[in-house]
Computed example of a mutant assay.
Amino acid sequence: MGYTVAGNELETDAEGYLLEPDYSEEVVKVIAAAEGIELTPRHWDVINYMRDQYRENGHTPNFRNMLKGINEFWPEADSKALYDLFPIGPAKQAAKVAGLTQPLGKGGY
């Protein structure tokens, strides 16, 4: 499985995560469409947060740390709000849609 973005085939693992991160906006749109997600500004807030965490730490946070970090810019966010955005699992699905590699273990650190 792979994604075609601007004529380029991006390699993925068996679960559809990119093997190399890609920070382009077009990648997010292609992966979100494949996941059945219609992007909203809140999706982009979470995607940008996940990308920042990946750049700073080399991996994405687990769900608990993700929620804690997101509460810094979206204080009313809770588990339900994040599952509404990324129903398969916010920590893993948000990383996938953000164009990042598969999270460590059960969703990062």
Rank of each mutant, 00 (worst) to 15 (best):
G7Y: 02
S24Q: 08
E26Y: 08
N57R: 14
A14W: 12
E9L: 13
P41M: 03
V5M: 04
W74P: 01
A81M: 12
V30M: 02
N48R: 15
K80H: 12
K29L: 10
D45V: 12
G36D: 02
F73A: 08
T40L: 03
V27E: 01
L39H: 05
A95L: 01
G105Y: 09
T101K: 13
W74L: 09
Y23N: 07
N57T: 11
A33R: 11
V46M: 08
S79R: 14
F63V: 04
G107R: 01
Y23L: 09
A98L: 01
T60P: 06
K29C: 09
A95H: 03
Y23A: 04
L82P: 00
D45G: 12
G16D: 00
G58H: 00
A33S: 11
G107K: 05
E38C: 09
Q53S: 13
H43D: 02
V28N: 00
N65K: 12
W44P: 08
I37T: 04
V97P: 02
R55L: 13
R64I: 14
L104I: 15
P75V: 07
I37Y: 05
G108S: 06
N62S: 08
D22R: 10
A94P: 04
F63C: 03
A77M: 07
E9H: 14
M50F: 03
E35W: 06
G105R: 08
N62A: 09
A32S: 02
N71K: 15
I88K: 15
